[in-house]
Simulated assay, not measured.
Amino acid sequence: MSRLQADRLYKVFGRRPDEAVRKLESGTGRDELRGEGTTAAVIDASFTVEPGHIFVVMGLSGSGKSTLLRMLNGLLEPTSGRVLFDGEDLTALSDRELRAVRSRKISMVFQHFALFPHRSVLENAGYGLEVQGVPRAEREKRAAEALELTGLAGWEKSWPDELSGGMQQRVGLARALATDADLLLMDESFSALDPLIRRDMQDQLLELQKRLKKTIVFITHDLNEAMRLGDSIAVMRDGEIVQQGTAEDILITPANDYVASFTKDVDRTRVLTAASMMTDPDRPDADSCGCETVTPDTGFADLCAVSARVPHAVAVKDTKGKLVGVVPQSRLIGFLGEYAEAPLACDAAPDNKAVASA
């Protein structure tokens, strides 16, 4: 399993890009450079994607996220910085060596499917293997296995225009999986789909990830999607990564007003867990003997339901039964705050009388 590292990546378009990087490093602003005919698309981006994790890069259009993705597999050469994958510096490879890495170790899933209309579903799924020179019998076998993984068994002989948008995107995902690449790069891969199909594809990706444990970089402009998919998330603005962390990190402690503006519309009940809300276990109201308890990964809705049934803070225990924290009822309501659309099974009243039920 392979780790991906981006080390101080810059991508500058226009006149004298190397000089522009030096100016950026010394504090010159992006807008000032634009006035000189230079566009800084990515500025000093650094991150690490652990093996088997999904790393989501999110931001609005023009934030630099797609440019960043294309530097990761060498489709764009960084103006400065390095990309390390599996211990190898991709930015130091020759064009031939880079093509070999892309054909065997890195696969890309595009936003608009990128299927060949004159090839069958099976042939599309096996295209990456064909580029590698894999014999026909083997590539058809592996392509069929990938199609089965993505729920398309039985559609091998169909043509792309006979499939729905969601099914076409599954073919694109199967093509990436068929090569057995260690790294998947997914550029707004679900954004062209209808909301219900999009959620179905998110479910599909998460289910596949449980089984395959790929290293994935996923680009999106949708924070709800980022929080649903990402083991860790990077938020970009104007070419810079302004915050990195887990979904809970970004939701609970946004780095600035820009990040906070994204989080205000997020359904917090789908993200928050007992671990993110618990406080010091040494509280006088943390009576954990003989009462209901929760685990650190208990979700918000279940936590509220337990809170409604006990007259004190909810005790949080780890898998060994050790008390690791407590969640006061007032804290539950405080975390949801103005985003609540329905009453909570929580109690913020001083007399611990339940004021709402789940």
Rank of each mutant, 00 (worst) to 15 (best):
D200G: 08
Q202E: 06
D187A: 12
M227E: 05
D257F: 06
M227R: 07
Q169D: 14
V235N: 03
R170W: 12
L163A: 04
E225L: 04
S191N: 03
L193P: 00
I233C: 00
I197Q: 04
L251N: 00
D194M: 01
K210F: 03
L229W: 05
G230Y: 03
D187P: 01
I241G: 06
L205D: 03
T220L: 04
L208G: 06
L205H: 08
A178W: 08
S191V: 11
V171E: 10
G165T: 07
F190T: 08
E240N: 09
R199F: 01
H221Y: 11
L185M: 11
R237F: 01
D182T: 11
I216W: 09
D249E: 11
D161E: 14
L212S: 12
N224L: 13
L205M: 14
Y258K: 06
T253Q: 15
G172A: 13
A181N: 09
V242N: 00
D187S: 10
G165K: 12
S164A: 10
S189A: 15
D187Q: 03
D203F: 13
E188P: 05
E225Q: 06
T246I: 11
I250A: 06
E188I: 01
E162N: 15
T179G: 01
N224D: 15
R237H: 13
K214C: 05
A234P: 02
D161Y: 08
I233T: 00
P254H: 09
E162V: 03
G239C: 08
Q243S: 11
M201Q: 06
S164C: 14
D203A: 13
M227P: 04
D222A: 13
D249F: 09
Q243K: 12
T179Y: 00
Q168A: 14
G239S: 10
V235E: 00
Y258E: 04
E240K: 15
G245Q: 09
K214S: 06
K214I: 09
L184P: 01
I219H: 03
I233M: 00
M167P: 11
V217I: 13
I219K: 08
I252H: 02
I250G: 08
Y258W: 13
S261A: 12
E162G: 12
I241M: 12
T179L: 07
R228K: 15
L196V: 06
V217L: 12
T179H: 05
S189D: 04
E207N: 15
D238L: 10
L193W: 02
L185E: 05
A178Q: 13
T220N: 09
K213H: 15
D222M: 11
L229Q: 02
L208V: 06
I252F: 02
K213A: 14
V171G: 12
E162C: 14
Q169K: 13
S189Q: 04
Y258C: 05
R198A: 10
L251S: 06
L205V: 15
K210Q: 14
E248K: 15
D187G: 07
A178L: 12
I252E: 06
S189N: 02
Q244T: 14
Q243W: 07
A181H: 07
I241A: 04
R228F: 00
D161Q: 14
T215D: 09
I216D: 04
Q243L: 11
D180H: 13
S164R: 07
G165M: 12
A176N: 11
D231W: 01
Q209P: 01
I250W: 07
A234Y: 01
D238F: 05
D194P: 00
K214A: 10
M201W: 06
M227T: 02
